[in-house]
């Protein structure tokens, strides 16, 4: 499968996790890893699985590297029908009111333009006891299996 891992990061934690997921998947798949700030909404590809790792910053806002992407998406308002994405969130339950709002907001934004979400949005809690990759690796494996059913033939 052809996969692009896109990360929205503020402190670098989401970037590190995205790189770890790439290493985990690249044995069996073609994987590219990039910051959302370097991804143009025109690059969405129906033959590709878009896996997003996104944190939350400040008062439930998108992290710095996801903000220009979100702005560009709103400005170009493309139809993302036929585009598949999955999303993993990083947050901190210390700020419970806006916990993981970054990934939630981004998923809603992509869905609003017609993109189809594969699987559930899984979130990691920086104040919890799990390591992010212990949640993210099984998530990635499930997502890839689901995506193979849906876009396997195209890719």
């Amino acid at each position: 499968m052809n996969i692009i891992l896109l990360y929205g990061t503020e402190t670098g934690n989401a970037e590190m996790l995205a790189e770890d997921i790439m290493v985990e998947l690249e044995g069996e798949h073609t994987v590219e890893c990039r910051s959302l700030s370097d991804f143009d909404p025109g690059e969405f590809d129906a033959g590709r699985l878009h896996m997003i790792v996104c944190s939350t910053y400040g008062d439930g806002e998108l992290p710095a590297s996801a903000q220009p992407f979100a702005e560009a998406l709103k400005a170009s308002a493309p139809s993302l029908s036929g585009i598949h994405f999955a999303i993993f969130g990083l947050g901190d339950s210390e700020y419970e009111e806006t916990f993981n709002f970054g990934s939630k907001g981004l998923a809603e934004l992509l869905a609003a333009y017609g993109a189809a979400q594969i699987g559930e949005r899984v979130t990691h809690d920086a104040s919890g006891s799990d390591m992010a990759e212990d949640l993210a690796f099984p998530w990635a494996a499930r997502i890839v299996a689901l995506a193979e059913e849906k876009i396997g033939e195209i890719a």
């Binding site: 402190t11 670098g12 934690n13 590190m16 901190d92 809690d125 920086a126």
Partner: peptide
Amino acid sequence: DHQGTKGIVRQFER
């Protein structure tokens, strides 16, 4: 009591 913020140490360990 902000251990989540201290999570960046995992990057630095690497």
